[in-house]
Every structure is written in structure tokens, then in C-alpha cells.
């Protein structure tokens, strides 16, 4: 990736491997990453909301990597979280029968650091760090659920330029209520591990997810287009999806009362 093609403040792109004794600092929202070379190893550490000191604090814990070859350069890219998101709008809304809604929500980005060695070998992933850690949550029943992250969102119906930041990925949901009942959207599951990240003039987008709701019993059809949303038609993919899936049927919506701590 060409760092020069981006704005001067963009944290994403390729950077030369720091020389011995030098420290590379990468700032993404509240997260600061420090990367340095020590005796042919790559050392990496991170801190959040630390007041952006020029040099890493003394009490930081470092992770160390010994690579096969000395890396030619380092690549810093945004990534979506590694588990599904349970998205809870601040104010639940009702999608009336046969209605459609386009929802915009911001997902805190993860930062992926890779070492690109000379030759044609694949980059070696060194670390993935969340810019803002999300709380764990559980989706589904006590016996057959799955782990997810919890994301509270305003679930906006429109977006403005101020919403974009280097540590936020804009995710677009197209909800279609194809059932004959009203759909109360209190929480929904977004499987972000199936989504790619696109970049358009320093703005990060996830590919559009279309959810067609057929009713309580029938569930929902979920489709990913494998292209950026129409609001960012010229965007280019910079991080592929963790797992590939173009469409599937799943339980996507849930009522708040669905899982009580004292349920049997």
C-alpha cells in the first residue's frame, strides 16, 4: 500500500522497518502503537489514552517477534473485530411491515500490524489491537449461543463527514422488513468477520450488509455484496474479510428480554 496516496494524517499504509534503536509511533484514535527493532527482533507495544507521549513509557509491556528474515517494511491496516457484533441502538426503532431502512453505524477499528519480508512470501501478522476495546457479550441461548462484542450505536439514518475518523469504520445496514408484522429493532447481530474494509479518501467503510426479515419463524436472509456501499462507490478494498461468506440465513434480531440472567 502506498502511504503517499493517503492524507498526511492517515495512520494506514507501509512504513520502513525502524532501524536498531529507533522507535516507530503509530496513532489511531485513542490508541498509540510503538514498534522498534532490537537485535533482529521486532518489538511492539501499545497504550490507550496515554496523552500521546513521544517516547514509550518505561512501564510498557512489549511483545517480541523473531522473524525468518529481516522485514523489508511494516504494514499497518485497519481491520474489523474478530467476532460478531451485537448492535444495540440507543433508542430502539420499529420497522413497520414492508418498510425499508438504511442504517449507518460506526465500528471501532482494530489495527493490524504485519511484517512484509523481502521476496514473495506472505506478510507475517504481528499483532491486532483494538483501538477501543468492546465489551464481551453472548448471543443466543445458554446452550447454543456464541460469543460476540457489544456495540451501542445511535443507528443513524444519514451520515455526515464529522462522523468519520481514522479509528472508526462506517458500516451500512440495509434492513428490509418483508414480513407482515412490525419489526422492533432492539438488538441485532452483525457478523463483521465476513466483511471487508474499504478506504475512500481517508474514510473507512465496511461493505454493505443487506438483511431481509421474513418473520419470527422464518428468520432473516443476510447478504454481503463484496463491494463497497454505494455512498463510497470508488473506494478500494484494503483489508479482506476474515472469513468469506456471501449470504446465509441466521437469527439476526432479538428482543431485549430474550436472555435473562436467571433464565433456566
Amino acid at each position: 500500500m502506498d502511504k503517499e496516496a493517503r492524507g498526511p494524517t492517515s495512520p494506514w499504509g507501509d512504513r520502513p522497518t525502524p532501524a536498531d534503536g529507533e522507535t516507530l509511533r503509530v496513532e489511531v484514535g485513542p490508541l498509540t502503537l510503538w514498534i522498534k527493532s532490537v537485535d533482529n527482533e521486532i518489538w511492539l507495544s501499545s497504550a490507550r489514552n496515554g496523552g500521546r507521549p513521544e517516547n514509550p513509557p518505561d512501564d510498557l509491556e512489549w511483545s517480541r517477534w523473531a522473524l525468518r528474515d529481516e522485514p523489508h517494511h511494516l504494514r499497518v491496516t485497519p481491520a474489523l473485530p474478530d467476532r460478531p457484533l451485537v448492535v444495540k441502538p440507543d433508542h430502539p426503532f420499529t420497522l413497520t411491515r414492508r418498510a425499508r431502512a438504511r442504517i449507518y453505524m460506526r465500528v471501532p477499528s482494530w489495527v493490524r500490524v504485519e511484517a512484509v519480508e523481502s521476496g514473495k512470501r506472505s506478510p507475517v501478522q504481528l499483532a491486532e489491537v483494538a483501538t477501543t476495546p468492546l465489551s464481551d457479550t453472548w448471543w443466543g441461548g445458554f446452550l447454543d449461543g456464541e460469543m460476540a462484542y457489544w456495540l451501542s450505536t445511535k443507528a443513524r439514518r444519514a451520515f455526515t463527514p464529522e462522523l468519520f475518523a481514522s479509528d472508526q469504520i462506517m458500516s451500512v445496514l440495509q434492513l428490509d422488513n418483508l414480513s407482515d408484522d412490525d419489526l422492533v429493532v432492539e438488538k441485532l447481530l452483525v457478523r463483521v468477520e465476513h466483511l471487508s474494509v474499504y478506504e475512500d479518501e481517508d474514510r473507512l467503510w465496511a461493505e454493505e450488509v443487506r438483511v431481509e426479515y421474513h418473520g419470527e419463524a422464518e428468520g432473516s436472509d443476510i447478504r454481503m455484496d463484496d463491494k463497497p456501499p454505494r455512498e463510497a462507490a470508488g473506494a478500494r478494498e484494503i483489508t479482506p474479510a476474515r472469513t468469506q461468506a456471501n449470504s446465509f440465513k441466521a437469527r439476526t434480531f432479538a428482543r431485549l428480554r430474550a436472555l435473562s440472567g436467571f433464565s433456566l
Partner: peptide, 14 residues
Amino acid sequence: AEDNPNVLMEPEPL
């Protein structure tokens, strides 16, 4: 509970 990221948001704390 809310401030600890390892505490699950759901099932909700009681």
C-alpha cells in the same frame, strides 16, 4: 460490571 470488558453485557448483570 459495565466498565469491565470481560463481563458479558448479556445475560445482563443483576
